[in-house]
Design a protein around this nucleic acid. Structure first.
Lengths: 134, 134
DNA sequence: TATTAAATGCAACTTAGTTGCATTTATATA
DNA sequence: TATATAAATGCAACTAAGTTGCATTTAATA
């Protein structure tokens, strides 16, 4: 039995290989844009319980498999890969037309000046505009 | 009877001068950092109805008296002044210690490169770090 | 002072997300 | 392969943010 990439990923992170998790990872790997809870729920053939889904999103996030994005829409979105504030620095692009959120790899945010007494740790950037699909 | 700054502001924007609005504006003018719904509710001596408060926040935002900030905490925060995406370009500073959000006036967000087919309209910047009070 | 449109308060609702607990399942070990 | 066990799942009940419809009140204006 061939060991798939996503199985390996779960193993590496010390997470059990369950049906929900395999489906989740596979889904994230095939997506070029961030997914909300409802995006994910819709994507699965068999309904997954709300709490199970949220709990897996949380443990994936902790393990660094996915990262959470807040695009100001009111709902969190998740995308494959390490968080921009934990190593993999990148900006997020929010399409003003279709609300899709993309990770913009390789965009290092500029260092900005802050007032006396303030200390900058990380800079998070959200780009708003129109995506290639719109 | 002396006309205060905040009364003038409401008049200019064509908004009725009500008790709640006067208190709200006065509160925002005296604050150096952004306020959440619960911050505001706590700040008022006489309890204001939830819907009234939210409706006023919305109309103030439309009028450009305040702007809404997404600090990635999950709850919206509001600060005095025009929005960064509507004229008054500025970054927001989120303190990782006390969660306080400040407007960083005079910080123009940098223009970032995006892939072919993507068109940038606005860049929103969030700076994470430690504030002067912490 | 009377009129009126807008603001308020109340209750009921929606949606995102969380928590406690009983049941099930993946993994490790005998 | 069977068994023990810790973790994952499903379910129900809950919280918190924010919205909406409607009746009542209030600010502005004539």
């Amino acid at each position: 039995m061939k060991t798939e990439n996503h199985e390996l990923l779960l193993e590496q992170k010390g997470l059990k290989k369950t049906k929900v998790r395999m489906a989740l990872i596979q889904h994230f790997m095939g997506m070029d844009h961030a997914q909300s809870y409802s995006d994910l729920q819709e994507a699965f053939a068999t309904e997954v319980d709300k709490s199970t889904l949220y709990r897996n999103l949380t443990s994936f996030e902790k393990a660094g498999i996915i990262h959470r994005i807040n695009d100001h829409s009111g709902v969190s979105k998740y995308a494959f890969g390490e968080s921009p504030i934990r190593g993999n620095e990148h900006a997020h692009f929010v399409c003003e037309c279709c609300e899709t959120v993309y990770c913009m790899e390789g965009l290092a945010p500029s260092q900005l000046k802050v007032p006396k007494g303030f200390k900058t740790n990380k800079v998070q950037t959200i780009i708003r505009g129109i995506c290639a699909a719109c």
